[in-house]
Amino acid sequence: MTAWPNLNRNAKAVMAAIDEQAAAWAVRLDRGPLSPAEQRELDAWTAADPRHQGALIRARAQWAGLDRIAALSPSGMPAFEGTKPEANRTATRRAFAASIVFLAALGAAGFWFTSERGDVYASELGEVRRVTLDDGSQMLLNTQSKAIVEFTDGMRRVRLEYGEAVFDVAHDKARPFVVTTDDVTVTAVGTEFAVRVKNAGVAVTVTEGVVEVKREHNALREPAQRLEANRRADIVAAEPTMIAALDPATAKRGLAWRDGMVSFDGDTAAAAIAEINRYNRRKVVLDDAALGSKPIVGYFRTSDVDGFARALAAAFDGQVRKDDDVVRIMAKAPKN
């Protein structure tokens, strides 16, 4: 779902044509005054499309601006070649180093210990934790999650006590990879999928391969179901399993947290607030419940409570008030 229609196939050609016409007029105007006929033609052109006027202004400004490159190098040869890329590379390296430090700091926050039942991994509020399991499979724990890992010769078992995790499963036909929660058992051989324990029920999203989903307290006696890539199963007690087809972008968007981001595309404001609140101690609260149903588009760092609240308030033409542990979004006080 996109906010507004994207460009059609020939939109680029149209854009290029507008630039070309604008350039022709800019140069024509540079040559000297227009004849009355030319002036009428220009007026007709600018009136024909709302984009034309702006395109002409841009073209004429660019034409005027090109005077300045004469000052840079009267010989017409590019100067200073080869100095900037080095500076850019240094900057990139620095940014990269910074992000590594950030991830390493995150990794230290959770905890791990071995209990009788297996290895216990947990993540703190706002933390994303990556765990490489003994077989090479990857487990990524989202905020406030806990998993117990127990591998035997015949089985790789992970119990997700609470929270959400993505599994990138190493192939091993002899040892199925099984993730259990109170409500459901998900079995995979080699694939990638996410399991999220919600207040009511469980969501299983498959991004690669196939898993088998089996309900535990199965009053409806549903058989185990195969869930393919780009499908999500929503399982709520006493209700039939709902399976939704997702386009790959949507499936991945739900996993933006792996990069420390949350992504909204047409979600309601209420759902977006609930999502950002999963990651932070300070909670966002919407004072006007009526706004909660408005669809929004957005991409935020999971920890950016203030940016998120500010954005939401601005979008609704409201204001932000910060109380102790709550960031409140409310209507603007009437102006005098």
Binding site: T2, A3, W4, N6, L7, A11, K12, V14, M15, I18, P50, R51, Q53, G54, A55, I57, R58, A61, D265, V297, Y299
Partner: peptide, 23 residues
């Protein structure tokens, strides 16, 4: 980068209109 829902043509439109406003 920030407006992932905008296509290239949308951006072109917005930029051109911004120039017209500026004028």
């Amino acid at each position: 980068l920030r407006m992932r829902s905008l296509g290239a043509a949308d951006i072109d439109d917005v930029i051109q209109e911004a120039y017209a406003r500026l004028w």
